[in-house]
Simulated assay, not measured.
Amino acid sequence: MTTGYSDSGKRRTRSASGRTKTEAKEKLRELVSDRDAGLTSDGGYTVADAVTSWLAHGLHGRNPKTVENYRYNAQGHILPFLGRRKLRELSAEDVELWLSRRAAHLSTRTLRLLHSILSRSVRHAQARDKVARNVVNLCDIPGGRPGRPSKSLTLEQAMSVLDAAVGTPLHAYIVLSLLIGARPEELRPLTWDHVDLHGRPAATPPVPRSIEVWHSVRAGGDTKTKKSRRTLALPLRCVVALRLHRLRQVAAAKRGGRRWDPRGLVFPSTAGTQLDAHNVRRAFRRVIKAAGLPPEQWTPRELRHSFVSVMSASGVPVEDIARLVGHSGTAVTERVYRKEIRPALNEGAKIMDTVFQTR
């Protein structure tokens, strides 16, 4: 069958064969159908080819960490199970079976990501006439394994963690996370020119010691939302911890024969670069272990949950807490972050005892 002509005018042909004449004719009809539909694949184009092509050419302008995350998930969960499957033979049943089997091992969020990667890869191939339709879009995403619910430190546990952090490189980081509720990705890029440890008490009105939470490690350096860009007054314990932290940095710079940079990172790595999440998690778990808590059950982000819970237990209105943690509303603050750390809610009983006095 003639499928077209090359730039030099040479005729391009495709042939079909089978064990019987009927089988050969059926394959030939498929070739004719593909030609009429404008498909350019010879039938050997696989799911692995589609995913690899999308990762290489379909993610221009994306953050390198995002691309690496997509590649890691594709290589770990898509290619080993569907990679050899010919794309034109991939069915919705194949995709549904693959998702249901992966659901026993992965969270729902990861399943959604895998479904998105595969769907976008097939759509990328579809735009290049490698396949007629995208069967991935016909499949529902099953529920995966439930994730570990976030927790909040009790006040006693929080005090133990603060005591255990004293003298460690992560002391000031933990104090800030627990006492102002900053996100981990907001503290890692923090620089000293965004920290005011003196304030202006004689000004009118007085200017408190504060920290400017204006950046994060997200693409472009922006905070998560517009409300997340905020300036927070520093509790005294944060000021003391940051001053000690800065003195240690100045002394370390002198020992290394260099000048301390007043605009440098507040929490750099030993190489002077920005900390990554693994650095923080590893050091944080050492502190948690020293505080007598199981290190595998706690993450740095739960210090932010603890801040919200302690503030709520202390009677601070949820609207004020939402502003302090940079939420655009109170829904996420209440549903995700606030954990009730008091043993019982007494306010309702006290009020009703007053209204309906026992006779």
Rank of each mutant, 00 (worst) to 15 (best):
A125N: 04
R133N: 10
H115G: 05
I141D: 03
R148G: 10
V131P: 01
L138M: 11
Q126G: 02
D129E: 12
L106I: 11
G147D: 12
A125Y: 01
Q126V: 02
L113R: 07
V131M: 07
H105T: 15
T108F: 01
R123E: 15
A132I: 06
R123P: 09
Q126S: 04
L138H: 11
V135W: 07
S107R: 03
V122P: 00
H105N: 13
V135I: 15
N134G: 07
S107H: 01
D129S: 14
R133H: 11
R148H: 14
V122I: 14
H105F: 09
L111W: 01
P142C: 06
R145T: 14
L106Q: 05
A125D: 03
L114R: 05
R148W: 09
L113I: 13
P142N: 07
N134V: 09
H124P: 04
T108L: 00
S121T: 03
A104C: 12
P146I: 08
R133C: 04
N134L: 04
L111T: 03
K130V: 07
L113K: 15
S119M: 02
Q126T: 03
A127K: 15
A125E: 02
L106A: 08
R123W: 08
H105P: 12
L111A: 10
A127P: 07
L114Y: 02
D140E: 11
R145D: 08
L114Q: 02
L114E: 00
L111V: 05
P146D: 10
K130G: 07
L113N: 14
D140V: 06
R120M: 09
N137W: 06
D140M: 08
V131R: 00
L106R: 12
L114N: 01
L118W: 02
L106D: 00
D140P: 12
L106Y: 03
D129G: 08
P149W: 06
R145Y: 08
N134H: 09
R148T: 15
R120E: 09
I141F: 06
A132W: 02
P149Q: 09
R148L: 08
S107D: 01
H124D: 04
I141W: 03
I117T: 07
S121Y: 01
R112L: 08
V122N: 01
H124V: 07
V135Q: 02
Q126L: 05
H105W: 07
V131Q: 00
R109E: 13
N134A: 05
A125T: 04
V136D: 00
S107P: 09
A104V: 15
L114M: 08
L113M: 15
T108V: 01
P142Y: 02
R109T: 14
V122E: 01
R112N: 12
H105K: 15
P142K: 08
A127E: 14
L138I: 07
